[in-house]
């Protein structure tokens, strides 16, 4: 009878809620919540004019620009290539397909620093690839924004492929066949029937790649060259402020980046709800 007094509002016959929830909250607090709170506390201590001054400083502004523009270009390229890769992996059968499928996650499994030094060395003016580009086109890759974009393409590959692939596998073959029987050309069928189904997955893969790319550090820091105003990315700027123990500046720059990441993720959530609304209206 005493059960009712200490009963949980959402009690269920399945046991273990208190234990598992407790452990989760304990670990979450230690690892995520307390550090996040200290970020908030520290931010509250910043003076607003100083914050504005720090984040609107020309060098900081240019680092944001470098980070966002390279991440955007890399993610767009990955959206295109990711779509193609997903298509090839789902729709075609060919030898070596399993290996390609397994390889997609390499950028995830390979430490970013390792990828970073390897890509850098390959693309310097006397590297295997860099030398070709330099000799024939006069283009430098390593230590330019082009190089940064290359590194970000590398780390962003898995995102779009892995979010589009499962959706493409489920696209109703019958819809496609119906479109074909109605006389739609392959291209029309793809554009009008398949592509709309893939759009939400494509958008979310793109945003995840974009968000990841903006914050990426390990693979970029080697290839970037880190010249202020030219190839200095925002995470690197945070790092150098930290090394000078200028926590206020580092935090200010980081806050703006967190806001950007938050905006990207919110935009994605918004886009997803727009798409699902459109679909449910049709239904």
């Amino acid at each position: 009878m005493s059960r009712r007094t200490n009963s949980h509002k959402y009690r269920s016959v399945i046991p273990g809620f208190g234990l598992t929830f407790g452990i989760t909250i304990a670990i979450l607090s230690l690892v995520v919540l307390i550090p996040l709170c200290s970020l908030v506390v520290f931010t509250a201590q910043l003076s607003f004019p100083e914050f504005i001054q720090t984040v609107t400083n020309a060098r900081v502004r240019s680092s944001y620009f470098v980070s966002i523009s390279t991440a955007l270009i890399a993610s767009l390229i990955n959206a295109g290539m990711g779509l193609l890769l997903a298509w090839v992996l789902v729709r075609y059968d060919f030898r070596g397909k399993k290996i390609i499928d397994g390889m997609i996650e390499l950028p995830f499994a390979l430490p970013t620093a390792v990828a970073g030094i390897s890509l850098t060395h390959l693309t310097t003016t006397n590297g295997w690839i860099g030398s070709i580009f330099y000799r024939f086109f006069g283009i430098r890759i390593a230590y330019t924004r082009f190089g940064i974009t290359i590194a970000l393409i590398f780390i962003g590959i898995p995102f779009v492929v892995r979010s589009v692939q499962p959706v493409l596998e489920k696209v109703d073959k019958e819809c496609e066949e119906a479109a074909g029987l109605l006389g739609a050309s392959h291209w029309t069928t793809f554009r009008r029937v398949i592509f709309p189904e893939l759009t939400p997955a494509l958008i979310s893969g793109f945003t995840m790649a974009f968000a990841r790319s903006i914050g990426e550090y390990g693979s970029v820091v080697f290839i970037a060259g880190n010249t202020p105003y030219k190839t200095e990315i925002a995470p690197l700027l945070i790092m150098s402020q930290l090394q000078e123990y200028d926590y206020a500046s580092a935090t200010s720059i980081a806050l703006v980046m967190l806001v950007i990441a938050f905006l990207i993720l919110t935009a994605n959530a918004f886009a997803q709800s727009m798409v699902s609304k459109r679909v449910s209206n049709l239904a």
Binding site: L36, S38, L39, A211, E216, Y217, P235, I238, Y247, A261
Partner: peptide, 19 residues
């Protein structure tokens, strides 16, 4: 909140521990 750590730049993750 559990998903949050992977959406944060690793450098910022380091920063919040320093703070």
């Amino acid at each position: 909140l559990i998903d949050l750590p992977v959406t944060v730049s690793p450098v910022i993750a380091g920063l919040i521990y320093v703070l």
